[in-house]
Design a protein around this nucleic acid. Structure first.
Lengths: 199, 199
DNA sequence: TTCTTTCTGTAGCAGCCACTAGAGAAAGGC
DNA sequence: GCCTTTCTCTAGTGGCTGCTACAGAAAGAA
């Protein structure tokens, strides 16, 4: 990755700076994070930021991508590793309670909360698409379970998937409001009781 | 109310201007709403706004108060009119699906979404307190139902109340993401299936 | 009429916003 | 050594932010 190139070499670690930026955006959200604060936390000058990352919006998009890989991965892992919709959802909700309140990092989920009330349409839309992606993944998983006879034939797959998405968003917001892990776990357990019994 | 006073009379309707301000804050959130936009929509100059409402933050607090009376009232009404916790929660969730997607007004709930990612602590804290108030009302209602033998003795009242709060917040966010009423009603129905059976 | 009180419109405050021009610094290629 | 390339630093840009000083307008009180 570190190809030798001509010209003066970059004096900072691009990956480390990206991590710092992720932290700030996660904590404050897109709009409330100023470029001045980013450069301060990243330890670089504004021209270096613009040379390395484009502009604030492009930097944010890269931050979101990285966040999805590093911290949003628990949803992808559950989707990949658990065999049934119920097991996926149970694991996702329980892990969300832990992830959204993990000590040493900002509460909640960046993808759920960083671009709320954001007047830059493209930014808000990008995050919305990522959330919608998850809901659709849940939905097709539920449909598969219905088809396989693991869930009642009359189950409202879209509604149930949307419910899981809403609970995740609600849990993230509650975490940002300062609610702690045990309380979020109670929310997850309550949500799981809504799951339809196997036929 | 319209007491005669000395001095030049105000040239605009204070209540109407407050309604316009409510609309803008509801649509855009606290931070993303500029005083310039407020004065434009309210049809008054900045000095008139500051004379009549104090400053942006005080105006917002008044807007929140009015919003709670006009649009958040459905929760209070359900709490006052329904006899059991289950009936309160069922009505609140179902009405929320309609309220959060009512045509002709901004989607979602101002109290749930207008101060997310807001760096002005006092504003964010004020809305958080209002949300917390609702959760506590649900909780004491559930406790009363447990004491009256209408719900199982082992019910986690705090957890269930927090769950309802999280679902409401999630529904508001989904509404802001453009999800429509029927889908939110499915979320409400799913959430209601989590309610513990009577003992 | 004149005084006092209150509101309104113009015009502008300092401070922050995202962003960048231009000069110098630090590397490889020759 | 010297050229090219790329990055960094200083010092700003215009534009927006919330907010206000000031002068004039419009009412009641005398």
């Amino acid at each position: 990755m570190a190809e030798r190139t001509r010209g003066r070499p970059r004096s900072f670690d691009r990956e480390a700076a990206l991590d710092q930026a992720t932290w700030v955006f996660w904590e404050r959200g897109y709009e409330a994070t100023s470029v001045a604060e980013l450069t301060r936390v990243m330890g670089i000058g504004a021209p270096s930021l613009y040379a390395a990352f484009g502009d604030k919006q492009t930097l944010f998009e890269e931050v979101v991508e990285r966040f999805g890989e590093r911290f949003g991965g628990f949803i992808g892992r559950a989707l990949a590793e658990e065999p049934t919709a119920q097991q996926v959802v149970a694991r996702v909700l329980r892990e969300a309670a832990a992830e959204y309140t993990a000590p040493g990092r900002p509460p909640g989920c960046l993808i759920a909360s960083a671009a709320l009330n954001c007047p830059v349409d493209q930014v808000a839309t990008g995050l919305r698409a990522r959330r919608e992606e998850n809901v659709r993944a849940f939905e097709s998983l539920i449909r598969a379970d219905i088809a396989a006879g693991r869930m009642p034939a009359g189950t409202d797959a879209a509604g149930l998937a949307r419910f899981v998405g809403a609970v995740l968003q609600g849990m993230s917001q509650q975490a940002r409001d300062g609610v702690e892990r045990a309380a979020l776990e109670a929310v997850a357990e309550a949500a799981l009781r809504a799951w339809p019994a196997a036929p």
